[in-house]
Design a protein around this nucleic acid. Structure first.
Lengths: 133, 133
DNA sequence: CAGTATCCCAGACGATACTG
DNA sequence: CAGTATCGTCTGGGATACTG
């Protein structure tokens, strides 16, 4: 289905139960943009220091494979969060940094980091790592 | 599982390149907690109105299956974000609300919503929906 | 260096049916 | 009502090898 008719999803009009005006699908889209196991990490690193070269990011996030790195990078690029700059040199050099939209994510990342740092977070149901065992 | 020896992951000590003191693994854990296609949505709805019954949440997020709903709910419960309260009645009634830790996510959610609402977000690479095509 | 290509798997996710 | 069980699909993600 065409994503706009058959799927009711959540309307931008306040649901009766919610009574809140923040449109859900907007939030959903935001979520979809940052979804993916590495996206937020990438953004985080780009927030900390930019521009970064491809290999910088690889080094910053050792657990990621090149495939995933480039993949998520591309997705972020498409979503207008990350900007890729290739220098026609040899050896090739490519730099990544955040667009304005990407940089605008800083508060959100900060809030998240804040949350992570501050309190709770007891049991970790996290299944990070590709079978850590 | 050893999860603490075999995987170097990211150290809490600032990497040379970063020179920043926010420990990456903390952020990683935070990410892992809210990762999953429905977690943030669930939290969002619980933030908006709580407590919510299981069926309330089903109605609030029509696209989710019970399986996923309960699954993510459990995960969030384990991570100390959501609290489940079952009333021994018949018919059964179960209510979900946020713990303090969960409620503490509000700023982050707000920041995200803010970001989503405010600017950019042009092309949507989003692959939400089970093959929207 | 910065990718691309290919193969492959685990598990995330969905649909449906069944139960206390 | 609030789940659990089972089965199936899809794709996220990893390993490895190759290229400009």
């Amino acid at each position: 289905m065409d994503a706009s008719s058959a799927e009711p999803r959540a309307a931008s009009v306040p649901s009766t139960a919610d009574g809140v005006e923040c449109s859900i699908d907007r939030v959903e889209h935001a979520i979809s943009v940052i979804e993916g196991r590495w996206k937020l990490l990438i953004i985080h690193h780009l927030l900390v220091a930019a521009p970064r070269r491809f290999s910088d990011l690889e080094r910053a996030i050792p657990a990621v494979s090149q495939k995933m790195l480039i993949q998520q990078l591309r997705a972020l690029e498409v979503d207008g969060v990350v900007r890729r700059t290739a220098y026609p040199e040899v050896p090739p050099r490519v730099e990544y940094d955040l667009t304005a939209a990407g940089a605008a994510l800083e508060p959100a990342l900060n809030a998240l980091h804040d949350w992570a740092a501050s309190e709770h977070l007891e049991a970790t149901s996290a299944r990070l790592g590709p079978r850590t065992a």
